[in-house]
Design a protein around this nucleic acid. Structure first.
Lengths: 299, 299
DNA sequence: CGCCATGCATAATGGATGCTTATGGACACG
DNA sequence: CGTGTCCATAAGCATCCATTATGCATGGCG
């Protein structure tokens, strides 16, 4: 920007009032100040902008062109300032970029985002599902604004806050002998236990809980390791066994009566789902609104 | 304009380079200067514009909005500066406002203006015909940029310059006994002399010339006073008499053979047609170009 | 024409602003 | 942990800008 805004403002005031003194009065400065400003502008642009004859000041051809252009600049600036001021209020807009690991990514998060978006049409949602570590890394690099993950190694540059507590239950077919019961750990030895692959958040939770009960997962002799949550769920619905799984992941099945749950004595498995944010990043209004919305929904 | 251009420039440089130091380098100032400028801008707008975390500086939501708006402002400003610079060259534009008194206004001036406009399509022409005094007044008041008039009283605030010398001839029908001759003043007493109304420029010229020859217009006993130039010309074409008239006004008739001219011994009438400009007014390029064009045409 | 009022230009001066230098604190990397 | 990089902050100085005072030009009036 080569033009000095005060000079431009002074020039415009002179054009409008056709007088240096009156322009000065309007701007709250003295006449010589206006005189100097306009002269500086004329020097800078290398053109005579005003005809000064006796009592009357009039723009030259170049002066008129500058005045018109200045009005456009001023209008645009006013608009910009209004947008900035209005930015702190009014309708939410922009794109909310969220990453989630597979667990929360396939259950709670999409639903919450869809509901939120329905209430805030001006916001565009971008959800990407990755493994926990990738989500965290991308949040740290500011590629994502929010992450929703289970257990994660601490990572510099990001902050974790509890988002929701995810209860892990033992799912079984609805007519199963475990349905609605509280069983012993030993009862599990005679059942076909379906487990998820290494690295799945729920598997880690269960391993930790069993360890606390003096058992190891492999002592239960699981013969079906079926990858991720959705595979395990489907197998149980189809009657091939039972599995530990996030209650949130089977809410619909429970409501539909296609699955039932049991509890295991001595085990109280749950895990924390965390919200991840980049430590030095100011939140967008959309992100803040989503988080508040989600917390209200999750209770 | 509330925004300081240097602060805006500093802010934009930081956004682009994602670094205060690099922005400072680009702007040719020190890092603290940029730091202060951006902070001043943040304070003025009441919003945090940049996330400053470790090695990396990133715009906040508001910062991004400001940056985008600033780019629009910069683009518009660049455009304006280009227009101003180009204003001294390239195609002529704008409206050229000319006033003329009836004599020149009905002959030379319209033709010149039309020819000029044909060569400068970007220029719009506005010609208004009035009596001499009105033309001069309006030029003085900057309502017209140029005036073209015959004899006029000096007027403060306007400058007169010779535009063309208008020869006054005695017009008669083509087969008339005067056609192509040099007659005596006395020969006019037996002719039907048609004169223009009081105030017409040509009439004044003739009165002055006759006075110099020791005669008065009324000694010639004119019985037809026919208003202005065009009325007189028509009457002569129709054979009702002879009249003194501007040669320029009958060039077409002479070429067509519908009128002829004679000279009168002892009379050499002509008058100066002046160009009038407002004394304190800078000329538009279009006006300058027209004047140069006209002078070249008038030789 | 002369006088007076008005209004812009210019010079001198003082205060505010803005930039620089020096330094401290935070962060990233080896 | 030590080092280097980078932004923030404080202090000091130079520059800039606005003000006051004054000169010059123009316009209006008697």
């Amino acid at each position: 920007m080569l033009m000095d805004t005060r000079q431009l403002a002074a020039f415009c005031a002179v054009v409008e009032r056709k007088s240096f003194s009156q322009a000065a009065e309007r701007l709250g400065v003295t006449q010589p100040a206006v005189s100097l400003q306009v002269r500086s502008l004329e020097k800078r642009l290398g053109q005579k902008l005003l005809d000064r004859s006796g009592r009357r000041v009039e723009p030259t051809e170049a002066g008129l062109a500058l005045y018109r252009g200045a009005q456009r600049l001023l209008a645009l600036e006013g608009q910009l300032l209004d947008e900035l001021a209005a930015g702190s209020e009014g309708e939410l807009s922009g794109t909310l970029e969220v990453g989630a690991s597979t667990g929360p990514g396939s259950t709670v998060v999409p639903v919450l985002l869809c509901e939120f978006q329905r209430e805030n049409a001006g916001v565009a949602i971008s959800l990407s599902i990755s493994d926990t570590q990738t989500v965290v890394d991308r949040v740290a690099e500011r590629e994502l604004e929010l992450g929703v993950v289970g257990a994660a190694r601490r990572h510099r540059g990001v902050a974790f806050e509890l988002f929701l507590r995810d209860e892990v239950v033992l799912a079984c077919p609805p007519g199963h002998r475990f349905a609605g019961k509280t069983i012993d750990l030993d009862d599990l030895r005679d059942e076909q236990l379906i487990i998820m692959q290494e690295g799945a958040g729920v598997r880690q939770v269960i391993e930790d809980e069993l360890r606390g009960a003096g058992t190891r997962l492999r002592d239960l002799e699981p013969r079906l390791e079926l990858g991720l949550q959705e595979s395990a769920r489907s197998a149980v619905v189809a009657g091939f066994g039972v599995t530990f799984i996030s209650r949130a992941a089977i809410e619909a099945d429970l409501a539909a009566g296609t699955l039932a749950v049991a509890r295991v004595k001595g085990l109280d498995p749950s895990r924390e789902i965390s919200l991840v944010r980049s430590a030095g990043r100011s939140s967008t209004r959309a992100a803040e609104a989503f988080v508040a919305f989600a917390r209200a929904k999750l209770g």
